[in-house]
Design a binder for these strands. Structure first.
Length: 784
DNA sequence: CAGTGAGCGAGCTTCCGCTTGACTT
């Protein structure tokens, strides 16, 4: 073997090997092979911030495989990605594998085609140490920030907390949005809509008044004026407009669209995209580039032309505008544009379809639209009124890219006023008869809380984080319990509606549901307190521009204009001084709030963060008598807990009596109220009040639960059950931890709810298998 | 799902960015 090529991804290595022929073997480094030790800082501050790298535990085997391959190769080609991290990976490989810098070839290609790879092979270079140093500076800075601030949080707030350049800013965004929402005062206003008929009652026209009223009496006065008014088509204005398709997907835009259109979490989108990538359906899924390769452009153009005709084709090259983009890869696109659908599991199919449509649309003609605005004047005996009714319509002259794809927006509910429809044929000067007019009260909405995907978008806009870290960052701030993902039910809001019909004005009250939110990110007490602490002591790190500023320095290092150790030193000296100062001077922060005074004992009642989470404390810490503590329940928070709720926490756990020689204890846990008996837990039903429940009722609950468990055992004893045989393989039904499933050829398929695993027929089982919703074994945490 | 919450002190926690495995109801 003459040549060894090392790339970052094993999927890539297989493809590239095919292009290069027998003289080349292609292996993968699976990302970085070396890093700073996890256990300690691993930076020699006193000696020029020298990083101490080590090979990760799980990479030892891979590295020894690479070493063996290097021995047999005449030439080694380092083909990691063309960006800062990729250059560093190449350098770490060179160092670890003891490669000779003068003979080792560094090559880059950002599309995986034979042409691009052969071109790369014919244009090798050496490793760019400036770029490597820029990466080292990035790495060292992140380590210093994370590993010096986190311990401060352990001693001042709570153990095992964390801070970092990216995660702490992500939390800040969520905390500040919540503050905005808290300070938001909803205003009500009246919107007037109307329905007209043309003479002879031939055509209906819907319109909206060009003015909104803030007060009910203003609206009412206007509605009364409308009673004896005449209406006429004053003008019809028609303007051409066009719509342009969205650029092809990057990691961030894919996450946003999959969230809006398919309801996927950011992590799920990435997991499914990874499978599509590994199966060769799409290009690499972690990218910040909107660029399509020439090959992709040709392929897409051909497909559009073939399917819709030449007039739908428009070749577009997109520019990446994102701050700090590195563009080592193409945009996310299908590898084969002629493949409109793929044979795979449902979520994979749907994500692929989204990617295919977006890519196709990005190379299609603009949609040509005709926008029509009809101005309806209002006049009475005193002459024309200032207000007018406006009716807007839109007609698509040429659909262009709209034939395949329309990007969705973040708005939860579409704005009615933008609701466009085809207009009836009207003529200027045409009189109109009012059928009904309605002044409806609306309320302004607070700014929306972030979803996972909209947070990613915001971070990307600020240039914070990378495609490979968006999903892990969200997991981190959720795992630390800085934020929680929750739904919020809609609240009923009273609205006044005035209806003018047949010359009569009726006022009715109706309740509307408003402000429902699904899967939004809410800050917790811990998140809020940590954010306040960091804002007070580390405002420079928390600045939304911090990353952009240091990125500028990294660019200078990459360009050879600055020395990385000097850049780090300039940051470190004042930063470390601040760390020392904060450790010495800042108060222990618990977010403590005096909730009130217990009327029975006269003692103070506090809510605060303790070593194990939020708690309430009855009595002062300094008093002679020891204070009593109780953990807060799920959903309660320091800021909003009431005195009654807090006092109630002290009444549990409650011993309600004995059953079968064991105590029966009632309490409320993280997951709701429960009865504990003989080491087992029994959930209370919603109608049971843990403060009032009797021993008899508890015993009943225990007995019911036992009966259910018994039945379950008996049911499970009948499984696994052989349903029949299909193409020579056994089909069996079974009940697992996560519900019933069908086993066939070593794979498990989730059973639909309506099918009974005891009575399922072979035909039904075949359908389940064809449906192909494969139940993946859940990944389990490795034991440390 | 309990217990804990002050303080003593050993020993633990933590960053960002690049990439996949092996786990098997």
């Amino acid at each position: 073997m003459k040549n060894l090529v090392i790339v970052e991804s094993p999927t890539k290595s297989k493809t590239i090997e095919k292009f290069l022929g027998a003289d080349y073997i292609v292996l993968s480094s699976n990302g970085h092979i070396r890093d700073l030790s996890k256990k300690e800082m691993s930076i020699d501050i006193d000696h020029g911030y020298e990083p101490e790298y080590q090979i990760a535990e799980e990479k030892h085997k891979l590295v020894s495989d690479l070493k063996r391959a290097v021995k047999e190769a005449e030439t080694v080609w380092l083909a990691s990605d063309e960006d800062r991290e990729g250059e560093a990976i190449a350098w770490h490989l060179q160092e670890t594998l003891k490669l000779d810098p003068s003979t080792t070839k560094r090559i880059v290609f950002n599309e995986i085609t034979q042409k691009a790879i052969l071109y790369a092979i014919s244009h090798p270079r050496t490793i760019d140490m400036n770029l490597v140093d820029a990466q080292q500076a990035r790495r060292v800075l992140d380590r210093i920030v994370g590993y010096e601030i986190s311990p401060i949080l352990w001693s001042k707030i709570k153990p095992a907390l964390s801070a970092g350049r990216v995660q702490s800013v992500a939390v800040r965004l969520i905390v500040e949005r919540e503050e905005e929402i808290k300070n938001f005062v909803s205003q009500s206003f009246f919107r007037v809509t109307s329905q007209f008929l043309t003479k002879g009652g031939k055509m209906q026209v819907h319109a909206e008044l060009n003015h909104r009223f803030d007060k009910p009496d203003e609206a009412e006065a206007f509605m009364n004026v409308l009673k004896c008014c005449n209406f006429k088509v004053e003008s019809i204005d028609t303007k051409p407009a066009k719509r342009t398709p969205a650029p092809p997907f990057t990691t961030s835009t894919l996450q946003q669209e999959a969230s809006r259109k398919l309801g996927f979490s950011v992590a799920r989108t990435m997991q499914i995209a990874q499978q599509l990538y590994e199966n060769g359906f799409i290009t690499y899924m972690r990218t910040d580039s909107v660029n399509l390769s020439d090959l992709a452009l040709d392929m897409t153009r051909e497909e559009v032309s073939y399917m819709y005709g030449e007039n739908y084709v428009k070749t577009r090259r997109y520019q990446t505008k994102t701050k700090g983009a590195q563009e080592a890869h193409e945009a996310i696109r299908p590898t084969d544009m002629s493949k409109h659908v793929i044979t795979a599991e449902t979520p994979q199919r749907r994500l692929y379809e989204l990617i295919w449509k977006r890519t196709i649309a990005s190379q299609m003609a603009d949609a040509e639209i005709e926008k029509t605005v009809v101005d309806i004047s209002i006049s009475n005996n005193d002459g024309p009124l200032q207000e007018r009714f406006i009716c807007q319509g839109e007609q698509v002259r040429f659909d262009g890219f709209l034939k395949v794809y329309m990007e969705s927006t973040d708005d939860d509910e579409p704005d009615e006023s933008e609701d466009s429809h085809t207009l009836p044929k009207l003529v200027e000067g045409m009189p109109l008869g009012l059928v009904v007019a309605q002044a409806a009260e609306h309320h302004t909405q607070h700014p929306p809380r972030y979803t996972e995907a909209s947070l990613v978008k915001k971070l990307e806009d600020l240039g914070i984080g990378r495609p490979s870290t968006y999903a892990p960052t969200i997991s981190t701030i959720l795992k630390r319990e800085y934020v929680i993902k929750e739904d919020r039910e809609a609240q009923p809001v009273d609205c006044t509606v005035m209806i003018l019909k047949d010359g009569e004005l009726d006022t009715i009250k109706r309740t509307e549901k408003m402000g429902s939110e699904k899967g939004k990110l809410f800050p917790t007490d811990i998140g809020t307190v940590v954010n306040r602490f960091l804002m007070e002591h580390f405002s420079n790190i928390m600045d939304y521009n911090f990353t952009a500023t240091v990125e500028h320095d990294f660019d200078d290092i990459a360009a050879g204009k600055k020395e990385w150790r000097k850049v780090i030193d300039k940051f470190y000296v004042p930063f470390h001084k601040n760390i020392k100062l904060t450790q010495q001077n800042s108060q222990r922060t618990s977010g403590e709030r005096l909730v009130g005074v217990d009327p029975k004992t006269g003692k103070n009642l506090y809510a605060k963060i303790g070593r194990y989470g939020t708690l309430v404390q009855l009595g002062d810490t300094s008093s002679e008598e020891k204070p009593k503590f109780a953990s807060m329940k799920k959903g309660q928070s320091i800021e909003t807990i009431t005195l009654e709720e807090a006092l109630a926490l002290f009444q549990l756990p409650r011993n309600v009596g004995m059953f079968e020689d064991e105590d029966v204890i009632v309490s409320i846990g993280k997951y709701g109220p429960y009865v504990r008996h003989n080491g087992l837990f029994y959930s209370l039903s919603k109608s049971d009040d843990p403060y009032e429940i009797t021993l008899e009722r508890c015993i009943e609950i225990i007995k019911i639960k036992r009966q259910i468990e018994d039945d379950k055992m008996r049911l499970r004893a009948q499984f696994p059950r052989v349903v029949g045989e299909y193409e020579g393989h056994t089909v069996a039904s079974n009940i697992g931890r996560y519900g019933p499933y069908i086993s066939y050829k070593g794979k498990n398929y989730k059973m639909p709810k309506e099918i009974d695993p005891l009575t399922i027929s072979l035909e039904e089982a075949k359908d389940v298998i064809m449906e192909g919703d494969i139940r993946k074994p859940r990944s389990r945490k490795k034991k440390a």
